[in-house]
Design a protein around this nucleic acid. Structure first.
Lengths: 337, 337
DNA sequence: TTGTATGCGTTATCAA
DNA sequence: TTGATAACGCATACAA
């Protein structure tokens, strides 16, 4: 049951391969009669052009790669990614592009990149120092960075610093002076090397310092519900009882809240919790989460649009960071007297 | 700045293309010396095999396609999909496969399928009658159906009927006799043609009928938060005031709850809400959602494993439907007296 | 152990 | 308007 090739169609229609190809890709150049005949034969034979052969010849694959620095089961634990893909997907649909998810292969993102048959990449949180980025640049494939910045690459970012600072100020204004920061990664995670981590952390710390408060403690966590829960438990096992926590993403914040409630705390009375991102469910959880909103889907759309432009050979300017906005809901309150 | 090909490496290393190819794909056949030399040259030249050329030759692409009957911005509005992808992604990682998202192209799934350079498909909710399924079968690519069944294809399913029936019985046991079903699609959506829709609907209706209650009304909705909200509003605009609603998915149920609370209802006192799927956030919303749990990630893993087996040429038996389980939380209660 | 030659299925150039 | 034919870049059977 071998595959029907263009040659089979050509033979059956008694024309050349060129003609068959034209019937599909350049119908205008063919006489009405032969075009119709070829099309009929192709349909009858159920001819489908071989994608790899096609793209070997055209040097285009019709798909863009979404580079994720972690395995899919990790990345998709954060609803942020769903939201981002919705934005990317919208633009992809407009341009008849499909989306290839490219997580590390055997732990190596570089080898995954090499094998990915794509016309361009959108890279998620891959930062300046990363060697992967260099090999990516050499590939001469257009690439847009999301939540990261590197010289020579165009990045789509939000104003992480300002958003974080406004969140911290919100807590301070409520009267909190015992604040803990819930980090973005496991113990040993270097926020400095992680663009958004560094910016958000700095925003938190600066605002707290400017309020004359001592440098806040930081507890390691991650980007998942479970990581948030673990962070809370670690915090209370240590005996530290902050009146508020600043998280670096919503899903961890939600995990913190769940663990806190499970431990018998009354939220927000006993503990104020702040997230970051404003994923949709932030508004639905209990209590509704105070968080820093960023336009996630819009970020995806923008990144995809920039990528498409670059795939068409256009030079694109680095966009301004997207604005963030503090959304005050019910997970924050004055600290207990 | 043309691409470095295998020929360039061969010339620079003063060997044949075969030798270069062996250095990568068949290192054992080469002498230590030449292998190292070739590798060194390849690295210096930054040689990266062209994916399309590679797969044209090997007839494999190293990626599997996830067929979604709706655009990505629609599909990813349901966290169910994230969860499924986590499962699929796990197995893909084990086998060095990447995942290609394949939504309809210009409204046509068939043309999208034709252009997708994949070694197999996992299809989401594509049902028996669908013509797409036939063209898929003819492509001789292995394909696993998720949440769907069709003769000649192996499908991964759950026991939708039993789960739905148990949910309905739960409401009946609580004393509800005024129940509305929130459907899976917009007005005109034919649940009968939609495998899981038909089964869940039947489960609901049968249980209600067996309790001697009148056939429940059904209101159209969809698979998103917004659709759930719209369903609730339509319901109350019509003046019907059920004491409970049975939804066909969690995200719509959560939308119903949000709209109901916004309308001033006290949940679950004024309205009991039941979902389906048990996506993670079902436990975090307010009130925590009573729902029918299905093993979503496990479903993804199973589908991916079956697909991988078929890609290796093994015949696979159709798996048993996965079990569901009613999870009673706080969104259901006795109806108001 | 390494090289030669061919196939993979298209598209695209050029000539007819 | 259509047809030969040459890329496209790699893998591999076979030969040396």
């Amino acid at each position: 049951v071998s595959r029907v090739t263009i040659a089979d169609v050509a033979k059956a229609a008694k024309v050349s391969k060129t003609t068959v190809s034209f019937a599909f890709n350049n119908p205008g150049q063919l006489s009405e009669a032969t075009r119709k005949r070829v099309e009929a034969v192709a349909r009858k034979l159920r001819y489908v052009p071989h994608p790899a052969a096609r793209s070997l010849s055209t040097k285009r694959s019709g798909s863009v790669g979404l580079l994720t620095p972690q395995p899919l089961e990790t990345v998709f634990a954060n609803p942020f990614v769903s939201e981002l893909i919705q934005g990317i997907g919208e633009v992809c649909a407009e341009h008849d592009l499909t989306l290839l998810l490219v997580p590390p292969l055997n732990g190596s993102l570089e080898s995954a990149i090499a094998r990915a048959p794509v016309d361009g990449f959108i890279s998620l949180g891959l930062n300046a120092g990363d060697p992967t980025l260099q090999s990516l640049n050499r590939l001469d494939l257009p690439c847009i960075l999301v939540d990261a910045e590197a010289p020579g690459s165009t990045g789509v970012n939000i104003d992480d610093y300002a958003g974080a600072a406004s969140a911290a100020r919100h807590l301070i204004e409520l009267g909190h002076d015992s604040i803990v920061i819930v980090g973005l990664g496991p113990p040993g995670f270097d926020h400095g090397r992680h663009g958004i981590g560094a910016q958000r952390l700095k925003g938190y710390r600066d605002a707290i310092r400017q309020a004359g408060l001592p440098r806040p403690r930081m507890v390691s966590a991650g980007v998942s519900f479970a990581a948030g829960g673990a962070a809370f438990k670690q915090l209370y096992r240590d005996g530290s009882k902050p009146t508020a926590v600043l998280c670096m993403n919503d899903i961890a914040a939600i995990g913190v809240m769940a663990a806190a409630r499970a431990a018998g705390l009354l939220l927000p009375h006993d503990l104020s919790v702040v997230g970051y991102d404003d994923i949709p469910m932030a508004a639905w959880v209990n209590p509704p989460l105070t968080t820093v909103r960023q336009p996630i889907a819009e970020k995806g759309r923008l990144a995809a649009r920039l990528l498409v432009a670059r795939m068409k050979g256009k030079a694109v300017a680095a966009p301004q960071p997207l604005a963030t906005q503090l959304i005050v809901r019910e997970s924050t309150a004055r600290p207990p007297a």
